[in-house]
Amino acid sequence: MTVLRESIILRRGLRVATAPLAVFSLYLLFAGHNRPGGGFAGGLVAGVAIALAWATEGEAGTRRLVAVRSTVLLGAGLAVALVTGFAGLVWGGAFLESAVWDLSLPLFGDVKLVSAIGFDIGVYLVVVGVATGLIRSLGAGSGEGPA
């Protein structure tokens, strides 16, 4: 850990790497329904980014990537997933039942939008919350984060 913080070049490099990782994580989230990926994978990639940010910048780094308390992310993620579930109950008849809408969007063309993506977003948020929470908790008290 300390090694990472002391080597400025490495630190810069890794810091730069967090941005593409974040983008990649979002890609995985939305691609998941048709290609490998999904909320878990996406959230975990974000988690790796957060870990890197902590390693290079300490708590401040995690706060740069995730501005809120981890509990809020956990609660919000769960809530989003549950709302999707109840929405299925209200509109479709069964809890967690998903709906499919055919949309034609200007940039993407004809797209099938599946409500299950809402559920996956909930998963994603929870996983990001987990990574943030775990790293902040277990990383606390190290007393050696850069100023």
Partner: peptide, 19 residues
């Protein structure tokens, strides 16, 4: 049935959000 399982979870999520 699903509500019995999910409503407590909704409650849990909300308690996390209200802080």
């Amino acid at each position: 049935l699903p509500a019995a399982v999910a409503v407590p979870l909704v409650g849990a999520a909300l308690t996390l959000v209200v802080g």
